[in-house]
Design a protein around this nucleic acid. Structure first.
Lengths: 243, 243
DNA sequence: CGTAGCCTTGATTTGGCTCAAGACCCGTGG
DNA sequence: CCACGGGTCTTGAGCCAAATCAAGGCTACG
């Protein structure tokens, strides 16, 4: 529980990609007190209206933020990948305004909110990296608003695939523009504001056109430049330094 | 330029609503070095791809964040009202990923990014308030994703009106559920992912049903409870303390 | 008093939704 | 080892909410 764990490497690496960090900061992050927990797919990590006292960090697997309308439909708001801190906002806000659920089996490290608050004050370089992570997430929200508000279904799905692929590549979970979707087509529909049926048709169409190759949930982007062009995709909003 | 100005009152008040602040902090905010600038309606305050060296704070008027697709359509991502700092993210991110434009004539106070960076490190209570403002903005993004992704046109417009009204009331710019829209119906369409024509029809329909009363751009919410219900509106996501 | 921007309304079209049925895939238990 | 069943994916048919196209009307301002 208090001991150094290989687990928090994921967090330290993810944050150090965001802002330069010295060995001391890096070491400090790895030694943060935390508690490991595993969740089955579909579990709730955070529920709307509650105020969690820990911030989970994803070590392995995927989660998503989600809101439900009174009419019963679900909108997925964002996806979290390994290295992401999934509850920075509840450090400063009273109640969670949305739900967080696991997409697959996930392993998280819980860090106490009080530990984080102290860290934000005492470690400016780490604090900077955490804020950058939060600001980039907000930037992705903005792009999703554009995606859902002003792009047609084909463009929208293409954009989603480009974004997810780039994010995975940045943390080494995708190679050669090829990756595994950790979600059903229903989830994909809830990410893009479409229906599962229409997502299916669009995916088929993208395969038929030869832009992607699908094998179950494995996606290979066959023609990156063309897909990105059709997707109206530019990765500036992801704020990934090296690329 | 360096002198105390009545202008920054707006910022100090807005931030102190977000996190408790002592007289010293309050005074410090009012005495921040800044430069006042006015913009005509439609001016660009920030352009995608640039890195401004000041953060504008709205003293009077309204601005909006906006992105354009390659197909030429525009999506408005958020609205800023007096007291809002409109460029906190560029403190930490290299290039702006979107545009900010004025909706009406606006007066802003430019604060140097370096001044802000120093402030974030030296004044924890103010820093907290600034981060809360940024986190609440992200929360509003999340709600807009839901609004655009999963609500029909009538619900969407109703939700937009509820949100805008509550935000204005929080800073004393609306009374009795009655306020002035600082935008054209085309802007409203770009906020909601609809077309101007359809926005017009929905507004008419909301008047005809008696939920709102319109006089040019003046909106009076005649039946708040009913409008909020139809809008699937709950103000939790705005994180306004007192209400 | 002309003109440009905004608003309003009608007619028609269409992208994506709904409804429905069947196929596939995989884990489970007999 | 195979039958069963539930979740997911796929495809077809028909429909509808919102888009598009188009034409006037209003208002403010030079």
């Amino acid at each position: 529980m208090l001991a150094k764990s290989p687990g928090l490497d994921t967090l330290a690496k993810s944050l150090s990609l965001r802002s330069p960090m010295n060995a001391d900061d890096f070491d400090f992050l790895q030694n943060l007190p935390h508690r490991i927990e595993r969740f089955d797919a579909g579990s709730y990590l955070i529920r709307e209206g509650t105020h969690p006292d820990t911030c989970p960090v994803i070590l392995d697997g995927f989660t998503f933020r989600q809101k439900l309308t009174v009419f019963g439909s679900r909108q997925i708001i964002s996806l979290q990948i390994p290295g992401d801190m999934i509850d920075v906002q509840n450090l400063f806000l009273d109640e969670s305004d949305h739900n967080v659920q696991s997409l697959s089996t996930v392993t998280v490290a819980h860090i106490r909110q009080s530990t984080l608050e102290h860290l934000l004050l005492s470690r400016p370089h780490i604090a900077r990296a955490i804020w950058i992570q939060a600001l980039v997430e907000a930037s992705i929200y903005r792009e999703w608003i554009v995606n859902i508000g002003r792009r047609d279904a084909r463009t929208r799905i293409a954009h989603f695939l480009c974004e997810f692929c780039i994010r995975l590549k940045a943390i080494g979970l995708a190679r050669d523009d090829s990756f595994e979707l950790p979600m059903t087509q229903e989830h994909l529909a809830d990410c893009t504001g479409l229906t599962p049926v229409h997502v299916n048709r669009v995916l088929k169409q993208l395969s038929d056109t030869g832009l992607i190759v699908r094998n179950k949930r494995h996606i290979m982007v066959a023609k990156w430049a063309e897909l990105a062009h059709e997707a109206d995709f530019s990765q500036r909003y992801l704020h990934i330094a090296n690329a």
